[in-house]
């Protein structure tokens, strides 16, 4: 996984534009225009197929109908989206804490690594959809089983990436700190933790996007509110436009979470943000 994701066009746009040159902005606009153009094309095709294809509305509502539903049912969708978003953010946050703690424990202790790492990997082989109903039976219809499902799905990329990041610390830097008589904690704090940060964020971005899926699965098996519940209810009633509108809301949530983490990443790793200026020298001094 690349350490610096340069292709996050939205993140680039948010950066302070002090040193940005005009050609850079144009290239940026170009890239966004391309990605937006693709979306517009898909939407137009959808609208045309729905309009001229004489497909019944309950099978494929037109884009316009979905947008209308998004407007008319905004309150309803927002109410359920809030529930799902709360679960996703809570689950993601717990996954970050648990995932990081696991990664550090695995990295620091051979014993923990041997004892736990196989289970960490095995946890991903178990289909979460299969255990979600069990969690509901054990823990009821509250928020807890949903959060557990989200944590189960999202801690993994965080742990695996962070362990890799911690291991990638430059051995020469570790040696330098050893010559200075640094303690194990100092070595961790000064070298290993910052070295792992870019990869941790790669994992966290995956986790953020996937946390919405976790919330969806958790709700799908047993819930009385949330976007997943709304989608189930609406499809049972053949309110297909509302199903589409809810799916829109769900994916928008995933995108927002992803870019929120990207934004935090940019703030937390300012050294990866090189300005587009040549290196200055003071050799002549």
């Amino acid at each position: 996984m690349s350490v610096q994701k340069r292709s996050l066009s939205l993140g680039r746009i948010w950066a302070p534009s002090a040193q940005r040159h005009l050609p850079g902005i144009l290239a940026q606009a170009n890239r966004i225009a391309f990605s937006a153009g693709l979306a517009v094309l898909a939407l137009v095709v959808w609208q045309l197929v729905a309009y001229f294809g004489s497909i019944p509305e309950w099978k494929l509502p037109s884009l316009w109908q979905v947008l209308q539903t998004l407007g008319s049912d905004a309150g309803l969708i927002a109410r359920h989206a809030r529930v799902t978003a709360y679960e996703a953010v809570l689950g993601f946050t717990i996954a970050v804490v648990v995932g990081l703690a696991l990664a550090v424990a695995i990295h620091q202790s051979r014993l923990v690594e041997r004892a736990l790492y196989p289970y960490v990997i095995a946890s991903q082989a178990i289909p979460v959809i299969a255990i979600a109903p069990i969690l509901i039976i054990w823990l009821g219809f509250g928020i807890l089983p949903k959060v557990i499902v989200i944590v189960l799905i999202t801690f993994f990329p965080i742990t695996v990436n962070t362990v890799d990041g911690l291991r990638k610390a430059d051995p020469d830097m570790l040696n330098l700190l050893r010559t200075m008589g640094a303690s194990r904690w100092q070595v961790f704090k000064i070298v290993q933790m910052p070295s792992a940060l870019p990869l941790f964020f790669s994992g966290a971005k995956i986790a953020a996007a996937v946390s919405v899926i976790g919330a969806f699965i958790g709700e799908y098996v047993g819930a009385s509110e949330g976007l997943s519940w709304l989608i189930r209810r609406s499809s049972a009633q053949f309110l297909t436009a509302r199903v589409y509108a809810s799916v829109f809301a769900l994916s928008a949530m995933g995108i927002i979470l992803f870019y929120a983490v990207s934004y935090i990443e940019r703030l937390a790793t300012p050294w990866t943000r090189r300005p587009d200026e040549p290196v200055r020298t003071s050799e002549s001094r």
Binding site: P270, W271, R274, V279, R280, T281, S282, E283
Partner: peptide, 9 residues
């Protein structure tokens, strides 16, 4: 940050 420095610096 160090990336802004020349080799001698």
């Amino acid at each position: 940050y160090p990336y802004a420095l020349s080799g001698g610096m």
